[in-house]
């Protein structure tokens, strides 16, 4: 209290300050300048490299792929349509992955030998197959057998691949809740299911949110791989545009930027949710 009152003057000697140079290096201004120099350098290198090989930049042709005004009025461009496809694809896949991940995690934690064995087998199987091979399996093998098209093959493939990663997030989150919470829930007569639903899972959400954000971002990015089976999402659209226009530099820079904007927005959005769930223990 008394320290904040203006009338108070400390009686002890004031402490030595840090070196001015050290303070300057730590400042926000310095960080921004350093960042700008590094990013600028990279952009300049790419640009001058392209100039050196005589690349003909045609940035003015890019906006029409986002939207255009024709005599029919406003129209969404191909990249926008591809982006929406990417987002629906990844969100359906993510929703499925969360459900499957929760089931796998609960099986693993059930303590029943059979359930644990099943979930560990599933985990090891999926974790040890490359995503690309898994996609081919779903499209060329499981697709014809169970009769789903390339769109659902890619959704299921992404869901299965990510369910394994998400189940580990669930497991870690559930294990991070203190053992005493189980005991307290048990001692008021809750069954295992009730304890999970009302006590354990609500508390593990705040442990799971940060890695879950990472997983959402990862999902959006790894959805690009389904372009190899020609699902018309963002990356496929990019390839199609290039095969018509040969503007590979502009288009790939643009596609990369679109992915980046989307994932950045997701990260920021989730950090708001995280603050909502930040309950102290």
């Amino acid at each position: 209290m008394s320290l904040s009152e203006p009338s108070y003057t400390p009686k002890g000697r004031s402490l030595p300050q840090r070196q001015p140079i050290a303070r300057a290096v730590d400042s926000v201004t310095f960080s921004i300048i350093a960042y700008a120099v590094v990013v600028g350098g990279i952009v300049w290198l790419a640009y001058s490299g392209a100039q050196a090989m005589g690349y003909n930049w045609q940035w003015y042709r890019i906006p029409q792929y986002f939207y255009s005004f024709t005599e029919d009025g406003f129209q969404w461009g191909e990249i926008s349509v591809g982006l929406v496809k990417t987002l629906t694809l990844s969100s359906i896949a993510f929703a499925l992955a969360v459900v499957m991940g929760l089931i796998v995690a609960l099986l693993r934690l059930s303590g029943l030998v059979v359930c644990t064995a099943v979930s560990v087998a599933f985990l090891e199987l999926i974790r040890n197959i490359p995503l690309l091979v898994l996609l081919y399996l779903f499209y060329y093998v499981l697709g014809p057998i169970f009769g789903f098209d390339r769109y659902w093959a890619s959704i299921l493939c992404l869901a299965v691949f990510h369910s394994v990663l998400i189940s580990e997030i669930f497991r870690a989150g559930i294990n991070a809740v203190a053992k005493g919470q189980w005991e307290a829930a048990t001692s008021i007569g809750m069954s295992k299911g009730q304890a999970y639903r009302y006590i354990i899972l609500p508390q593990s959400i705040r442990f799971m949110l940060p890695p879950m954000t990472g997983e959402v971002v990862h999902m959006v990015k790894s959805s690009a791989i389904v372009s190899v089976i020609a699902v018309a999402e963002l990356t496929t659209i990019g390839r199609n545009i290039i095969s018509e226009t040969y503007m590979s530099f502009e288009v790939w820079f643009t596609i990369a930027a679109v992915y980046m904007v989307v994932t950045l927005i997701l990260s920021v959005g989730v950090s708001f949710v995280e603050r909502r769930y930040a309950v102290e223990t």
Binding site: E183, A184, S187
Partner: peptide
């Protein structure tokens, strides 16, 4: 489960639901 409802327990670390 029925039995645990009849028996209350208080823990060293309180174990309230945070």
């Amino acid at each position: 489960y029925r039995l645990r409802q009849e028996v209350g327990m208080v823990f060293q670390q309180f174990n309230l639901f945070p």
